[in-house]
Every structure is written in C-alpha cells, then in structure tokens.
Amino acid sequence: MGKQKAVSKDLTEKILRECHEIYTEGEDCLTNVADLLGEKLLAPRKKITVMLMGNHSAGKSSFINWYINENIQRTGVAIETQGFTIVTSGKKRETLSGNATVHLYPEFKPIMKIDGMANYIQTEITTSKAQQAELVHFIDTPGLVDGDMKYPFDVNEAILWTANMVDLILVFFDPIGQALCKRTLDVVEALSEKHHPKLRYFLSKADEAGDECDRQRVLMQIVQELCRRPSLNKTCFG
C-alpha cells in the first residue's frame, strides 16, 4: 500500500511538472501566446491553490485542520480568522508574517496595496503528509458577517483579488449560523461573474441541522436565495 501511494504521488508530481513546462518552456509556451493576444495567463503551480470562503463559523478552518490532520488553524464560535492565511506544507513547522509571505509568494505582492492588508496576511507551514497535503495550498479567508462588524481591510476586495490567483474556490454555508449572510451572497455573486467554473458549494455542519427534512429545507432556502441573484441563477443553476 505504501509503495502504491509513493508511485501515485510521483505520478501526480510528474503531471504537474509537465503541465507547468507547457506554460513556461520555449518560445511557443502558453504564457507567451497569451501575452501576444493581450491576455494574462498564470502558469499552473506545482501545488493546487484552493481558497475557502463563507459566512462566519461555517467550518472553513475546521476543514483545513481535518484535511491536513493537524490543528493548525484556530476554530470556534468567535471570529477567529480575521485575516488571510495560506496553509502549505514544508520541511518544518513555521509561521510567516506578511512580508515573509510575500517573499515566499511574490505573486501576492499586489494584495498588499489594499489598505490595512499588510498586517493581516500570513503563512502557516505544516509538515503534514495527510491526504497528499503537500500538493495543496489552502487560503483561509475571514468569516463573513453582516451588521456592524468592521474588518481591518476591504475584505470583499481582497477575496475578489485572491480569486484570480487560485484554482478552486470552496464556498461554505453554515445551516446553523448565517448561511444567508448578505455579504457572503454579494461576494459569491461577484465571484460568479468571472470565476464560476472554480466555485464549489458545501453545506457544512449538516449533521447539526436536524433530521433529513430539516437539512433539505435549509438547502432549498439557500438555493432559492442564490437563484434570486440573476448572475448566480444564470451561471450556476441554469
């Protein structure tokens, strides 16, 4: 079994490396072709980048902790995640601040221009090998709430900018909390305009939503609310 996993990992890394070369190697590489057409094309990285977003206490950080099998992100009822955290794998456990994060990921330098963002982006490096965690970058974003909640930076702008840099966007809806939070729905609608192929929706904490009828009722309410948004109805639900 261990040998099969090693072969699978080597094959995955080989595929990612060859895909990267198609984008970057030679005069006819895809990034050069895109430049000639006036388009910006990001070469695939050796790791898949996944952004998690959703309402407050929707389970984003808990999902990351579960995936890497390590309690690297704080979780709880309080709003624990107020900034952006990149969770990645490395040779040793380490926490990097904003400047160190940008040094490691220079493609994120433009996000530092968002007022107040510099102090609210960091990287958590884990040594976990669980579920091929070494092939994934996770980007944990602040939980979204309505009302008088004040963020130290323009969280909507930061999420929309980051969406350009990721391969997949996981949207978590918490049936117990603020699943229909207006801010969450506004951001999802804005994301769907440009990034709808990347979006995936999850009803988190479904086991806490009562019986099967209760879960179906909550799911229908969320879908109905999303479908009231013209762009979401068009691009995500047909």
Rank of each mutant, 00 (worst) to 15 (best):
T126E: 00
Q122D: 09
A78W: 13
E18K: 07
D28P: 05
Q131F: 10
D140M: 02
Y105E: 06
A34E: 04
M112K: 04
H56M: 11
K109Y: 08
N99W: 13
I111K: 05
K113R: 03
L104H: 12
C29N: 08
K46L: 13
E21M: 13
T123H: 07
G54K: 03
L144M: 00
N71T: 08
Y23H: 14
L36T: 07
N55V: 00
L37R: 10
L42G: 12
I79L: 12
K46N: 11
T101P: 04
T101F: 00
N55A: 05
F63Q: 03
G116V: 00
V145N: 07
T31V: 15
D10Q: 09
L16D: 03
K40M: 14
H20Y: 09
Q73I: 02
E21R: 13
R17C: 11
L52R: 00
N55S: 04
K113V: 05
A78M: 15
Q73K: 05
T88V: 01
N119D: 14
K14H: 13
W66A: 09
S89V: 09
L30K: 08
Y23F: 15
E80H: 12
A34R: 02
C19Y: 12
N55T: 00
S62W: 06
T141Q: 04
E70K: 09
I86T: 13
H137F: 10
T141A: 04
K9F: 08
I72H: 03
I79C: 03
R74A: 15
G116Y: 02
D35F: 11
N71L: 09
L36G: 10
A58I: 04
T95W: 13
I48R: 14
D140A: 04
H56A: 10
I72L: 08
M117H: 00
E134N: 12
K47W: 06
T85V: 08
G83I: 04
N65R: 00
S97I: 14
F138T: 01
V50H: 06
L41M: 15
A58C: 03
D28R: 10
Q131P: 01
K46I: 09
I68Y: 01
R93C: 11
R17M: 12
L135N: 06
K47E: 08
K91E: 15
E134Y: 10
N69M: 07
K46S: 11
H20S: 08
A133G: 04
Q131H: 12
I114T: 05
P44D: 08
R45M: 14
C29H: 07
Y67D: 05
Y23N: 10
A78G: 14
S89R: 08
L30A: 12
G76R: 01
K91H: 15
G90V: 06
A58D: 02
V136A: 03
A118K: 11
E134C: 08
E25D: 13
E13K: 14
Y105S: 05
T75P: 03
K91M: 15
N69S: 08
W66L: 05
C29G: 00
I86D: 11
N69D: 13
K92W: 09
L52F: 00
